[in-house]
Design a binder for these strands. Structure first.
Length: 283
DNA sequence: AACCAGGGTGATG
DNA sequence: CATCACCATGGT
């Protein structure tokens, strides 16, 4: 586990002894799209209908206006605190490129995001860019999500709600051709035609096949949903940046020694090459 | 103006 | 199985 204790402090929860977390980088490395830096070092977001403002001071995290119960039931899990990232880095460290990427941003953690929100978010990510994805997701929540008490943000709209919408309803999102994909996803999830439960444990290829029954979900989006929404740490989404990195540094594929955490390594690598494009050139 | 963005679909070899 | 035009939108 990557913190030592959490205590109530007024109306806040304070987490001490936090390791392997840089909040700013973790919330802005392209894995999630619903966190806003409302002030310097103050991040606001909503997960599973619960809002929070979080600040970080070194190894101390403060969850504002949060109860211990909320921290234990939502935020501990969301930030993947059960995982010891020292062990992750030790395993990735057997590979020089992965070691370099993890050292560049040692505070990245791979979040455990809600499956439905993750599915929608990465359907919207197809042939799109991160800042625009954020805007579309925000408009989706602003227009169709339920208000969250004590926050200006809304919950992510449910599949039930979205299953009743039309493409015209989604026009204000300006999501282009992806609107139809969102509605298809909502209808399949709400009807039970796509059941999330088995996806946590099925073999990756079978879980991928299930997710790909949704329109607009191909190999890359499915891998993102498995990694970020179902904590399948072995899944490696291959977007344009990772494809370049693989071509440059892993022409014969990733080393099998890191396979079980390759998706986590992918997150370090994604952030690394985006901020160091020279790392994509042959030496 | 052409190209790119955390790609996918459908048609065609 | 591989390739390719096309897809809506906004930024550079």
């Amino acid at each position: 586990m990557d913190y030592t204790n959490r205590i109530t402090c007024g109306s806040d929860v304070v987490v001490n002894g936090v390791r392997n977390l840089d909040l700013a980088v973790t919330l802005d490395c392209g894995q999630c799209f619903r966190w806003n830096a409302i002030e310097d070092n103050v991040f606001e977001g909503v997960v599973l209908g619960t809002a929070c403002k979080i600040t970080q001071d070194g190894s101390t995290l403060r969850f504002h206006d949060t109860t211990i119960e909320e921290f234990d039931s939502i935020w501990h899990h969301y930030f993947d605190f059960d995982r010891d990232y020292n062990e992750v880095k030790k395993q990735l460290g057997s590979d020089n490129v992965m070691a370099r990427a993890a050292e560049f941003s040692p505070g990245i953690r791979v979040l455990r995001q809600p499956p439905w929100e993750t599915l929608c978010s990465f359907i919207l990510s197809a042939n799109n860019n991160i800042s625009r994805i954020k805007g579309i997701v925000q408009r989706l929540c602003d227009i169709f999500g339920e208000p969250v008490e004590g926050s200006n943000m809304n919950a992510f709209p449910t599949a039930e709600k979205m299953a009743a919408l039309t493409e015209d309803d989604l026009a204000p999102l300006r999501s282009g051709y992806r609107a139809a994909y969102l509605i298809d996803a909502a209808q399949k999830v709400h009807s039970g035609q796509l059941d999330f439960d088995p996806i946590y444990t099925l073999p990756i290829d079978e879980a991928t096949t299930l997710l790909r029954t949704v329109k607009g979900v191909g190999p890359k989006v499915a891998a993102c949903v498995l990694l970020y929404g179902f904590a399948r740490a072995e899944c490696v989404p291959e977007d344009v940046w990772i494809k370049r990195a693989l071509a440059t540094h892993y022409p014969t594929g990733l080393p099998p020694e890191i396979a079980s955490v390759a998706g986590l390594g992918q997150q370090y690598l994604f952030h690394y090459v985006r901020h160091n494009p020279h790392a994509l050139e042959v030496e």
